[in-house]
Design a protein around this nucleic acid. Structure first.
Length: 682
DNA sequence: GCGATCAGAT
DNA sequence: CACATCTGATCGC
């Protein structure tokens, strides 16, 4: 879920995907796609009033997004103020500052984001550099390389900042099966069921959100069966979708919904009420699209998991996986990266840490290994060492800053930068010289550094006064008060099970590792929970055998079985737990010693220079800590590790937990990077 | 009565 | 599975 505040540092008078608070003063609005969490404030009376007063303010989005938006009467008042921009067509927009009369031109390009119908990324080019706001996206590896408009000639454009969908930016979600794999898995499941008889129907348990349409259209196309939905008027001008969906309940594929659809299903009724055909009861299975993810080297995986007598989960994701994000970032090579999403169950600090690691890995390895072939540009630009990460404003800090801010609002342009960003950024620069002895809870800025430190120097963690040098510095603008008290620990980052639900951690805990260790990753289209009783033998199955769907009920199936299956799959991923076994370890230390009231002395657009200064300052405060060396001058030779990555590894051995052995310090650097990349440590 | 916000469910 | 949305409770205007 997006927690992007709406504005970018480089162009703070534009608001994207947020329409409340400070965004009410924007000179132009942008909507990346039609999901509610990106439309906050879009139909609020305050914005409506603003529109009535400021006739030059417009909302820019894709034609499809405009169509979907205006289908709802709630947004009708936008009708004359929406400018639909064609995708992949650079468009110049003149922005007028109503206060000063100042005019500024910016070129915006919409790039397909692959998230839901009409979803786009925004590429802005103007006087403060080129920045990319991804919105939510799912792009396969190499797709960025195929986007003409991300390039100038054969080179990728120099991009100052990327505002990134970090939903799955976590090595735990290293791999998500491709759109095609997921589609085919669901297709074959649906096909195998509905061809049994005309009374066999499938209910697709889809959330009320755009994004499943390509599933519906593909199923309909392949099977010649339209999909029943509650509503379709929003697609009235999209024949390629409209043709494949229907409000006629007499079909074998349903994606209709009802608030109590669970009860309906238990009563062998579809959410639309259908329960029989010509007096013959329907045979209903439910298929719930869910995001399943897998660690590195478990590329072949179960797209479908049976979770009950007549219920299945099917892999489906609207968002890019960790490796896809890594590929994307590695290709773009921005100077700054800002996360748009702090997933629930995670914290802003964790996202920052992971982003740091991603960049660390990319910086060290070079990024060519992530490229697909055809449009491999020569990248002269070296990835920078630092990542800047902007955290969402929380209530406390944003209100705080807005309050103090609005009082000083003489000149909108000068002060219109997102409050926390502006202040924090200045703070970052200012504070380096003076923050060593500070740790004030009301600060809305924290700094994160990645440092490796000696296990004996236990004082690093949680002690903001002991700064370690780092050539990978993260200036982290945060309104999150809690992050101050909650000093992140490396083992919190890696031992994610402590943050998972009781169920899953119990399952993980109780699952003998030997079971997983012997399991093959041979592709199973369907993994039936029946196999659980002898899950150690799953390795002997092959995909063709397991594609059969038994119509008979599997007795004794329950959701726990499902959990175990998934958990065991997870365990094939990377086991980070040995990091807690002592010895040297990497620590990400975060502290927030910065004074948010420090005035801004410099030019906002010179972010890079400031960051370098900040790094230098951080370096001056170096302590005894070991550095993570990042060699960004490294030649871009293809990485054999990634070569392997591109292959399917059918077999996978879970790494053992080396209780006794401590890695040698000189190996740690390499080790950590592999870990961060989701690679297996032997 | 509406909106904003949070917790919880799906 | 940490997708996005809806519901209901609560609070403030």
């Amino acid at each position: 879920m997006s927690s992007f505040g709406g504005r970018m540092r480089e162009y703070p008078w534009l608001s994207i995907d947020r329409f409340d608070r400070e965004n009410l003063r924007a000179r132009a609005y942008f909507l990346s796609h039609c999901h509610k969490d990106h439309m906050k404030g879009l139909r609020a009376p305050s914005l409506k009033r603003r529109l009535e007063c400021s006739l030059k303010v417009h909302l820019y989005c894709s034609p499809v997004t405009k169509e979907l938006l205006l289908t709802s009467p709630k947004y009708k008042f936008w009708e004359n103020r929406i400018v639909a921009l064609e995708v992949e067509t650079p468009t110049q927009i003149s922005l007028l500052d109503e206060a000063s009369g100042e005019k500024e031109d910016i070129v915006v390009t919409l790039l397909p984001a692959g998230h839901c119908p009409g979803s786009v990324m925004f590429l802005f080019q103007g006087q403060n550099g080129t920045v990319l706001y991804t919105g939510d996206f799912r792009l396969a590896k190499g797709e960025a390389a195929r986007m003409e408009l991300l390039h100038s000639g054969t080179r990728v454009k120099d991009i100052q900042s990327v505002y990134l969908d970090t939903t799955f930016c976590d090595p735990r979600f290293y791999q998500i099966p491709s759109r095609e794999e997921c589609l085919n898995g669901i297709l074959e499941l649906v096909r195998s069921w509905i061809t049994l008889s005309r009374y066999h129907v499938v209910w697709l348990n889809c959330k009320a959100a755009y994004g499943y349409e390509y599933l519906f259209t593909n199923l309909s196309e392949e099977l010649g069966v339209k999909v029943h939905v509650n509503k379709l008027d929003m697609f009235k001008n999209m024949p390629e979708i409209l043709y494949h969906i229907t409000t006629d309940r007499h079909t074998q594929i349903h994606a209709c919904r009802h608030p109590r659809d669970d009860d309906y299903l238990r009563g062998n009724r579809l959410p639309c009420g259908m329960t029989s055909r010509n007096g013959t009861p329907l045979r209903i299975i439910s298929v719930k699209p869910s995001t399943m993810w897998f660690g590195e080297r478990t590329r072949k995986t179960n797209i479908i998991v049976r979770t009950g007598e007549s219920s299945y989960r099917a892999c489906f994701s609207f968002h890019s996986s960790y490796s896809e994000i890594k590929d994307f970032l590695g290709y773009i090579c921005p100077v700054n990266v800002y996360p748009n999403v702090v997933p629930v169950g995670s914290t802003a600090d964790e996202v920052v840490k992971i982003l740091l690691i991603v960049v660390l890995v990319l910086t060290d390895e070079g990024s060519d290994d992530l490229f697909d072939t055809e449009l491999t540009p020569v990248r002269y630009k070296i990835p920078k060492h630092q990542v800047e990460t902007t955290l969402p404003e929380t209530k406390a800090s944003s209100e705080n800053s807005e309050g103090s801010h609005s009082e000083n609002m003489g000149n909108y342009k000068a002060t219109t930068m997102p409050m926390s960003s502006q202040v924090d950024f200045i703070d970052c620069e200012e504070s380096n010289g003076e923050d060593d002895d500070e740790e004030e809870s009301e600060k809305n800025t924290v700094w994160a550094q990645v440092v490796a430190h000696n296990p004996d120097s236990t004082s690093i963690l949680g002690n903001p006064n002991e700064k370690a040098h780092s050539d990978l510095t993260c200036a982290l603008t945060s309104g999150q008060q809690e992050s101050n008290a909650d000093m992140p620990q490396w083992d919190v980052f890696f031992k994610r099970d402590i943050k998972t639900t009781d169920d899953s951690s119990e399952n993980e805990d109780h699952l003998p590792s030997s079971i997983d260790a012997g399991r093959s990753q041979s592709p199973n289209l369907f993994s039936d929970s029946d196999s659980l009783s002898d899950s150690t033998h799953i390795s002997s199955q092959n995909s063709s055998q397991s594609t059969h769907i038994s119509e008979q009920g599997s007795q004794g199936l329950d959701s726990q079985a499902d959990t175990v299956l998934i958990t065991s799959q997870q365990t094939h991923g990377v086991d980070f737990s040995f990091l807690n076994k002592g010895g040297n370890r990497v620590t990400v230390s975060v502290w927030k010693p910065l004074d948010q009231n420090t005035p801004c002395p410099g030019n906002d657009s010179d972010l890079k220079g400031k960051n370098q200064e900040m790094n230098a300052e951080a370096g001056a405060a170096q302590t005894q800590n070991t550095l993570i060396e990042v060699n960004n001058e490294k030649s871009k030779t293809p990485n054999p590790e990634l070569e392997r990555d591109s292959q399917s590894s059918s077999d996978f051995e879970i790494p053992s937990t080396p209780d006794a052995e401590l890695p040698r310090p000189d190996k740690l650097h390499c080790l950590y990077k592999k870990l961060a990349a989701g690679e297996t440590i032997y």
